[in-house]
């Protein structure tokens, strides 16, 4: 895929700052899946996630020259997509909260495995979390990031991040009680 030996993100980001579109292409290949996944988990909708990921990546190209410390490129990129996804969520017309007690239709609960029912319940419960909590929980529990990394991404202190994740978990545990 790459015509050079594996270069660190920081080197590629610096080249992309200078206008090397090939370097940016390589960075995209490395990070596009995570960018899309964050958007998808926060937004809960594939089409919205694709739009948000695309806007975030184009924004990254335009804003990249302003990034001084290229060593934090990935955190910077994930921050852009997280913020865009959160903005998109917040600008949605508020819908009635999803009933967490009921599994969604489709194949019918009796044909779904226990695991997929549980996963469905979790997805619905996530959709009802306040967006800030949802983003922190996703970055920690699904993307496996540290509190410090998440703090950089959501622009909060690690302590605040810890608090949000804690509240998110309390809510989710509660929601799964309803599901039972």
């Amino acid at each position: 895929m790459e015509d050079r030996p594996l270069s660190p993100d920081a080197t590629l980001a610096e080249r992309a700052q200078d206008g090397d579109t090939g370097a940016f292409d390589t960075l995209l290949r490395r990070h596009q899946d995570t960018v899309y996944r964050i958007a998808l988990r926060v937004l809960g909708d594939a089409a919205d996630a694709a739009d948000t990921a695309q806007e975030a990546l184009i924004t990254a190209w335009r804003k990249l020259p302003e990034l001084e410390n290229t060593a934090v490129f990935s955190a910077w990129l994930y921050r852009i997509v997280t913020n865009r996804a959160l903005n998109a969520v917040r600008s949605r017309i508020p819908a009635a909260p999803i009933d967490e007690g009921l599994p969604t239709a489709a194949p019918g609960p009796e044909h779904q495995s226990m695991a997929s029912q549980l996963r469905g319940a979790l997805t619905r419960a996530l959709a009802n979390l306040p967006p800030g909590q949802r983003a922190c929980w996703i970055l920690r529990e699904l993307e496996g990031m540290s509190y410090e990394e998440i703090a950089q991404i959501v622009n909060a202190t690690p302590t605040a991040v810890r608090g949000r994740i804690h509240r998110a978990r309390t809510h989710l545990v509660e929601a799964l009680r309803l599901w039972r």
Binding site: A115, S116, L118, R119, A121, L122, T123, E141, L142, R169, L172, V173, E174, L176, R177, W179, R180
Partner: peptide, 12 residues
Amino acid sequence: RLRALDSARDDL
């Protein structure tokens, strides 16, 4: 419930 959450999270 915590176990259920962990297993749903792992699954997701």
